[in-house]
Design a binder for these strands. Structure first.
Length: 282
DNA sequence: ATGTCTGGCATGTGTATATT
DNA sequence: AATATACACATGCCAGACAT
C-alpha cells in the first residue's frame, strides 16, 4: 500500500489504510455484483475533495493477478477478486460501476429503474419510491430497492434469462410514462434538469449495453462516505435516510441483515412485455 | 471515458398567398 | 399561368449537456 495515511474522506476521517481495511470486509458483498461485468471506476487520488476522473481502460502497470475484458476497443478491469479490489483501492478508486451487460453475453441480468430527486426534494425520495414499489408489486414483480449512495434510489429487478436491453428500454419507458401520468406532481421522465421542476426523475434511459451503474455496496466519493445499500421495502416506506448507510456503519448492518439482494428471486417479464407489445423486440 | 439525447442552426420541403 | 415571397414545419448535423 502506498500513502496509508492519506486522508480520503476528510469529514468522515477515513485514511487510505482504513479504506482498504473496509474493502476487505466489503469484498464478499461487492465483488459478486462486479464479477462478469465491465468495470468503470472513479478515482480520487487526492481524496473526495480533490479532482476525480472516470477510468475505463485498465491502468498500467497491470499486476499479473488482474484480469481484463475487452469491449468496444476498451480494455476493462474485471473485478473478480480481493487482490484486484485492493489494487484498485490503492489507486484511489473510490467508486465501482459495473456495466449492465455481462462479459460474453448480451441479455440483461436485471431491470433497473433509477430515481433521482430534484434539488431540494431529497427528503421525500423514499416516499416517492414507495409508490413505485407499490406499482411493481401490483404487476406481480418482486424488486429490491437500494440507495445509490448519492441522493437517488435504484430499484433492481433480477431477471430470468433472455431479455434484451431494447426490451427493457421500452418497459422502462412504459413505467416512466405511467408514473408520470399517475403522479404528475411526483415523477418526470425529463432528462434536462431545468425541465424536472422539482419532481423525481425516473431514468430508464441509462440502462443499456455498455453503460454502467453504481454497484450494490460500492462506496461513493461523497463527503459522508456513503455506500450504495440494498434496503427492504419496509425501510423505504419508513423513510430511510440514505446518509445512514456509509463506510462506518455498513459492517454492522451486513452482520445483522446480510445481503438483501443475494436471495432476490429472478423475475419473468414475459407477461408485461407482451402487454406493452415488446415481447419479441431486440 | 464514452454514449445518448437535446437545442440550435443550416438547409430543405411544402403550402399558401401575392405579384406580375 | 408562371413566378416570387413568406412562413410553417421537416430533416440533418453538430456542439454541448448530461449521465454513470
Amino acid at each position: 500500500m502506498t500513502h496509508p495515511d492519506k486522508i480520503l474522506w476528510p469529514l468522515a476521517g477515513i485514511r487510505k489504510a482504513d479504506y482498504l481495511r473496509a474493502l476487505v470486509e466489503l469484498a464478499p458483498y461487492l465483488i459478486p455484483y462486479c464479477r462478469d461485468r465491465y468495470l468503470t471506476t472513479i478515482r480520487y487520488p487526492g481524496g473526495v475533495e480533490e479532482k476525480h476522473f472516470y477510468q475505463k481502460n485498465a491502468p498500467s502497470p497491470l499486476p499479473e493477478f488482474v484480469s481484463t475484458a475487452e469491449y468496444n476497443g476498451v480494455r476493462y478491469v474485471h473485478l473478480d477478486s480481493l487482490p484486484t479490489l485492493l489494487w484498485l483501492g490503492n489507486l484511489g478508486a473510490l467508486e465501482f460501476h459495473p456495466s449492465f451487460d455481462r462479459i460474453g453475453r448480451s441479455d440483461a441480468a436485471e431491470w433497473v429503474l433509477d430515481i433521482d430527486p430534484s434539488e431540494g426534494r431529497e427528503a421525500g425520495v423514499m416516499e416517492a419510491v414507495s409508490r413505485i414499489g407499490d406499482t411493481l408489486e401490483g404487476l406481480g414483480l418482486s424488486s429490491v430497492p437500494k440507495t445509490s449512495g448519492a441522493d437517488g434510489v435504484q430499484i433492481l429487478i433480477p431477471l430470468t434469462e433472455g431479455y434484451s436491453f431494447g426490451q427493457l428500454h421500452r418497459l422502462g419507458g412504459f413505467m416512466g410514462h405511467y408514473l408520470e401520468d399517475k403522479y404528475p406532481k411526483l415523477f418526470t421522465t425529463e432528462r434536462r434538469l431545468k425541465d424536472r421542476q422539482g419532481r423525481y426523475y425516473v431514468d430508464y434511459v441509462q440502462q443499456a449495453a455498455g453503460k454502467s451503474l453504481a454497484a450494490p455496496y460500492t462506496p461513493r466519493g461523497r463527503k459522508e462516505a456513503t455506500i450504495s445499500t440494498p434496503l427492504t421495502w419496509e425501510e423505504v416506506r419508513g423513510g430511510a435516510d440514505p446518509r445512514a448507510f456509509h463506510l462506518g456503519s455498513i459492517g454492522a448492518r451486513l452482520a445483522e441483515k446480510g445481503d438483501l439482494l443475494a436471495g432476490a428471486p429472478r423475475q419473468n417479464l414475459d407477461a408485461i412485455l407482451k402487454f406493452i407489445g415488446a415481447a419479441s423486440e431486440s
